[in-house]
Amino acid sequence: MFTIKDVKASIDEKEILKGISLELKPGEVHAIMGPNGSGKSTLAKVIVGHPDVEDPEGEICIDDKNILDLEPDERANEGVFLAFQYPVDIPGVNNAEFLRMAYNAKQKYHGKEEIDPFDFNELVKDKLKVLKMKERFLERPVNHGFSGGEKKRNEILQLLVLDPKVVILDETDSGLDIDSLKQVSEAVNYFKSQDKIILLITHYQRLLNYIVPDYVHIMNDGKVSKTGDKSLALTLEEKGYEGIES
């Protein structure tokens, strides 16, 4: 269970989130939609502990553990994963090495044995197959020189390797062509079938054709203004935000 209870947060002394509450159960996909500036990406930042967020209030719990006071790395090791809208380049750091370090950080956090490079290689190969990615992808520096689509697929590769409990996809569909969108969606649906919790942040209905949400939440002015099933996204596509709020 992943619960967000009355979360408020500011960035640059401006209150962006004004009391958000959501409850997500294992195996559920929740989509968050909303106009620009409604607070969607800030919500993602609050969940992962981005340093821009000032004095967040409320509670964010994985099962019964409140993670709001934890460092970003501790939150990640508790099972939160954000697929970034704009993943950062890390020149000079090999993708495979970075993935293994992240994997081992989680193992260590949970008191488990670290994995050696050989066994890790086998683990990653299986995940690459899911995304139909080539092995040479692992030898490149993290996101450096990647196309927009490659960066998004690399985020999903990290997701599959790190196997978190809660996944936030922040506008993962932006910059993806149709084929890449299908591949990424297949990987996310594979992940969903493992009883994981998925929170999609998106502007467009098209992603929801491939990753079908159980719930759609509309955000407006830092709050959830409407919640419905997948048909709400279709209505939104037809009427726009102004039409749906009236």
Partner: peptide
């Protein structure tokens, strides 16, 4: 922050970035 969000602590994140540089 990106590296920390993948589970590595601040010190490890900094070292990784310096090494990458």
């Amino acid at each position: 922050h990106y590296i920390k969000s993948r589970g590595l602590n601040e010190e490890a994140a900094k070292q990784l970035l310096i090494y990458g540089f």
